[in-house]
């Protein structure tokens, strides 16, 4: 088909030499255009294949390498960070356990002190209570004696008032018997 166009147009180009035709089909300058095109392509090819493309490929490879290295370094740093966090957590847990131990110890100490104090206080209180009881019983005994005396005296007085002389010993005996009953 290309040859068809060529044939048709070459016949036309002669006709178009005088009349304004399609400039693209003016075959008299095809040789010139093809010549310069080939030079252009060869120059571009040499520039690209010798200088530009190897350079860009090198830059891209280098960048890929740098990125890979950076990623590796970042991963390493990340591992380190995780390690540090673990250490921190461990230290935190240890500190917490220590604190708990100290708290428990202090609590136990305080409890012991408290118990001792309570015991001492209890002992003191019971001693005081015993003393007081003793005093009270003494007082009670005193009181009984006094009642006996009063009763005796009253009985003697009553007997005397009735006009009889009674023996004091008898009265006392009688009062004691009466009071027991």
């Amino acid at each position: 088909m290309a040859t068809d166009i060529t044939k048709v147009s070459s016949h036309n180009a002669e006709a178009a030499a005088s009349a304004p035709g399609m400039p693209q089909l003016d075959f008299s300058n095809w040789g010139n255009q093809i010549f310069w095109l080939l030079i252009t392509l060869v120059v571009i090819y040499l520039v690209l294949s010798r200088i530009a493309l190897p350079r860009i490929a090198a830059v891209l490879a280098e960048r890929q390498g740098t990125i890979t290295n950076d990623i590796a370094a970042a991963e390493e740093l990340k591992a380190k960070a995780v390690e540090a966090e673990d250490a921190y957590n461990k230290a935190l847990a240890e500190a917490r356990a220590e604190a708990q131990r100290i708290v428990a110890e202090a609590k136990a100490e305080i409890q012991a002190d408290l118990d001792a104090a309570t015991e001492k206080a209890d002992a003191e209180i019971s001693a005081k209570a015993a003393e007081s009881e003793k005093a009270i019983s003494e007082i009670r005994a005193g009181a009984l004696e006094s009642i006996k005396d009063v009763a005796n005296d009253t009985a003697v007085a009553l007997v005397a008032a009735l006009g009889t002389q009674a023996k004091e010993a008898d009265v006392t005996k009688a009062v004691a018997t009466r009071m027991k009953g």
Binding site: V47, L53, V59
Partner: peptide
Amino acid sequence: MVLGTRRR
């Protein structure tokens, strides 16, 4: 392609 990439 050449001048643009000269700094690599």
